[in-house]
């Protein structure tokens, strides 16, 4: 009896240790692309070449589009605005403060909600967009500060996100054929699956 209690206690300790390691803030990696065309273009390229930011942005646009034009319009401004605010705050603070593993939550939550296609109020979708924008923007801004790049890169990042969300959410809103909406849901399930695998990779280290 005492032996099994000891094993359970040790397992709990191990699980806590793994969780703590996963939640430790990792050093910021801005990995901004150097295009040679200046910080604005570097920022635009960053979004297009970084799936850890690109996929949640597209998933957010799909979710907003599935929830109608009002949610789409609000998400367009909420996501980009929050990304900019989060980015500037992260740049000023200069530290990530949160573990980068937390970005997998965007994949899981947004992908899962897109796959489920449950009708949500535009306010809830907007609130989600604000959270995603603040989180990813903060990490981008802190990364830019750590790598001593120009903050103007944030303008490029936000511009690219604005265009992507506008095009993707408008496309989904315009879908009238049933199977095309289903295809959007399937893509949502893929995003959630990628998020779950990402979480596994993060925990594995």
């Amino acid at each position: 009896m005492r032996f099994s209690v000891a094993i359970a206690s040790r397992r709990r300790g191990l699980a806590l240790g793994v969780l703590a390691c996963a939640l430790l803030p990792s050093p910021a990696e801005a990995h901004l692309v150097t295009t040679g065309l200046g910080p604005i273009y570097d920022g635009i390229s960053h979004v297009l070449m970084s799936p850890d930011d690109l996929v949640p942005v597209l998933a957010m646009a799909l979710l907003a589009g599935l929830n109608g034009p009002v949610a789409g319009r609000r998400t367009l401004f909420a996501l980009t605005g929050a990304w900019l605010v989060g980015g500037m705050a992260g740049f000023l603070v200069g530290q990530t403060l949160v573990p980068s593993t937390i970005t997998t939550a965007s994949f899981l939550v947004i992908g899962g909600l897109t796959a489920a296609d449950r009708r949500m109020s535009p306010t809830v979708v907007t609130a989600l967009a604000v959270v995603v924008g603040l989180l990813h923007g903060w990490l981008n801004g802190a990364g830019i500060a750590v790598s001593q790049r120009e903050a103007l890169g944030l303008a490029g990042i936000v511009s690219a996100i604005f265009v992507l969300v506008a095009v993707a959410s408008a496309f989904v809103v315009s879908l009238r054929i049933g199977w095309m909406r289903i295809a959007v849901r399937v893509v949502g399930s893929w995003v959630a699956a990628i998020g779950l695998l990402m979480l596994g990779w993060s925990l594995r280290g």
């Binding site: 399930s189 998020g195 779950l196 695998l197 979480l199």
Partner: peptide, 14 residues
């Protein structure tokens, strides 16, 4: 894919 990813997650965390 979602359940498959869960299987992958189990494998990744050992």
């Amino acid at each position: 894919p979602m359940v498959m990813a869960f299987g992958g997650f189990l494998g990744l965390v050992g």
